[in-house]
């Protein structure tokens, strides 16, 4: 657990951070809470020559009410997501999912932006922001950009962030009170990554599902929206049987990985079962 040598800067503004990142080129990496990058450094799986530590940029931390949306600073920790009253009120799914990330030590240091920018498909929050239809806000040499979550995750550990670009915040539309939610995480130990996770949002109307959104964790190289489930659930009766039936297509279009904790066919099965459970919980049935 001995990292290779690297240079380190801790800029005091987003502009300086972007300049440092641009200056460092391909061998520069942003570090925030360090909960994803540091293990890679210590295992010598990553060899950046420059770390740009955005830990001093307090403007990237915290939650602001933007009227019909919340703006969440990229450096907001998992712990803050769990405990912030605005998040709990307007997008409780994020708080619930953040509460399942690893252990308390990780949740106090790890950040929302770090989890999104690292883009590990086994991470919990990418599938959640995908289900929430969130928008990623970036700062780069060419100014600021807004990237919808659906376009942000490009491949395994790869995002739409351009060279020199930093994720500064995430804009999440507020959900009205008729939305229910559930993050169903399946893992072997409390600290372990999800074998499969399902982030479900359901809007109910007159005993039916008016609208459902489902994001899947660890069912491919990127977080995935379970489109077949969303279509099948829309208009379905809000009953366990109907929702389980809608969940039967949860693994359509997925390419789940194989590892020690599960072969692809087992993950497909889990996705169906867990999606049913998540929809039931989100629909309150």
């Amino acid at each position: 657990m001995i990292p290779a040598k690297f240079d380190y800067v801790r800029p005091s503004s987003v502009g300086d951070a972007v300049s440092a990142l641009v200056g460092g080129g391909e061998d520069a990496k942003v570090i925030a809470g360090g909960q994803s990058l540091l293990p890679l450094l210590r295992l010598r799986l990553a060899y950046p020559e420059l770390l740009v530590d955005i830990g001093g940029l307090d403007e990237l931390r915290g939650v602001t009410d933007g009227g019909d949306h919340l703006l969440i600073g990229a450096r907001t920790t998992h712990y803050q997501l769990v405990h912030d009253p605005l998040i709990t009120e307007h997008c409780g799914l994020l708080a619930q999912a953040a509460g399942t990330v690893a252990d308390p030590a990780v949740r106090h240091r790890g950040t929302l932006g770090g989890s999104i920018a690292h883009a590990d498909p086994a991470g919990d929050l990418p599938a959640v922001v995908l289900a929430l239809d969130a928008t990623m806000i970036t700062a780069g040499p060419a100014g600021s950009r807004e990237i919808p979550a659906g376009e942000f995750f490009v491949d395994y550990l790869t995002t739409a962030l351009a060279p020199g670009e930093i994720l500064t915040g995430i804009r999440v539309p507020k959900l009205s009170a008729d939305w229910g939610y559930r993050y169903e995480k399946f893992h072997r130990t409390a600290q372990a990554w999800a074998i499969v996770g399902v982030a479900a949002l359901v809007r109910r109307s007159d005993g039916h599902v008016a609208e459902a959104r489902v994001g899947l964790t660890n069912m491919g190289s990127v977080p995935i929206r379970a489109a077949a489930v969303e279509t099948a659930a829309a208009g379905a009766q809000a009953s366990p049987e109907a929702l389980r039936e809608a969940a039967a297509g949860a693994d359509e279009g997925t390419q789940p990985p194989a590892d020690l904790h599960g072969a692809p066919d087992y993950r497909r099965h889990l996705a169906r079962v867990l999606t049913g459970r998540a929809l039931e919980a989100a629909a309150g049935v």
Binding site: I195, H261, A263, Y266
Partner: peptide, 21 residues
């Protein structure tokens, strides 16, 4: 969980498809 699930599948006479990891 995977082994327990596969044991149940096998006992039902429905061997799970695919190879374990």
């Amino acid at each position: 969980p995977e082994r327990v699930w596969r044991a149940i599948q096998a006992a039902h006479g429905q061997p799970a498809h695919g190879q374990p990891a």
